[in-house]
């Protein structure tokens, strides 16, 4: 059984058909790339899966469960957590606290326990802090834990976005352009990190324009164009696919 199974999903905005009858499945444990020219519907698909939009038609399943109508907090609870193309952080929080908020789902939070500062709630917060520090160390951000998120350099902000997502202990992590705006060294480091995250048993679905990254780490790649799937396969197959060349090189689209 596929981890995420998308069946004939369409998303229309008025007359604009952003996604048309899309079928595709992500398998447990893989790194799946999602590519396509600008406006192909990749981020829209993320928004549909995570529950920001309700699809116009079609359904999708996560671990066999129908999650079509779930809102973002519902999909997050089941273990689907995403990052954003435009860096989205709790800008005025410290780096550590960003990740600790990310721990929300597993924080054993209780309103009155927290208000009264019961020993139990204090112990849970210490556990959360330890877990968050572990994630920050893993992502190479531990030394900035007390900085405000807004003061971090760009590359570190992307890494912090992923740290927050990891704190939610996802089984499917959806990354929207994780290396955009990074220099080659930062981007190489991020590739290694993504592979290490997968090695911890987290399935990854990733949108990326940087072909070196996509071809370097994805086991399978799905190509979208105008909201439709035009190709799917290993990086080798995608590289040779004539339809993909057509989508990227034919017409006015730039080479990503």
């Amino acid at each position: 059984m596929a981890l995420l199974d998308i069946q004939k999903v369409s998303m229309h905005f008025g007359g604009l058909k952003a996604i048309r009858e899309l079928d595709f499945a992500v398998q447990q444990g893989e790194i799946r790339g999602l590519i396509g020219p600008n406006g192909a519907g990749k981020t829209t698909l993320f928004n549909v899966i995570s529950g920001i939009y309700l699809p116009t038609r079609g359904r999708f399943f996560f671990q066999g469960q129908d999650i079509t109508r779930l809102r973002p907090h519902g999909t997050a609870k089941l273990g689907i957590i995403r990052t954003f193309q435009a860096i989205t952080l709790f800008k005025h929080f410290s780096v550590l606290r960003n990740v600790m908020v990310g721990c929300h789902l597993h924080s054993h939070y209780s309103f009155f326990g927290s208000l009264l500062g019961t020993p139990n709630s204090l112990r849970h917060e210490r556990e959360n802090e330890a877990r968050s520090m572990e994630i920050l160390e893993f992502m190479g951000l531990a030394r900035y834990k007390d900085e405000l998120a807004m003061n971090l350099p760009h590359g570190h902000q992307r890494a912090l976005g992923i740290s927050i997502a990891l704190a939610g202990q996802p089984s499917l992590l959806m990354l929207d352009e994780p290396v955009t705006g990074m220099n080659p060294e930062e981007s190489a480091a991020m590739m290694k990190l993504i592979q290490k995250i997968r090695d911890r048993g987290i399935t990854i679905l990733l949108i990326e324009h940087d072909m070196k990254v996509v071809m370097g780490i994805c086991e399978r790649i799905t190509v979208l164009n105008f909201g439709e799937k035009i190709a799917e396969g290993t990086p080798e197959e995608i590289r040779k696919d004539p339809d993909v060349h057509e989508a990227y090189l034919g017409g006015e689209h730039y080479v990503a």
Binding site: S50, I52, R71, P72, H73, A76, K77, I81, R82, F84, T88, L89, F90, K91, H92, F93, R97, M100, V101, G102, H104, L105, Y109, I164, A165, A167, G168
Partner: peptide
């Protein structure tokens, strides 16, 4: 923190499971 996280970035807080 939950309140402020909604203040700062509601979409992000809902994606870490905050209703």
């Amino acid at each position: 923190w939950i309140f402020w996280s909604i203040h700062e970035a509601e979409v992000l807080s809902s994606h870490v499971g905050i209703h």
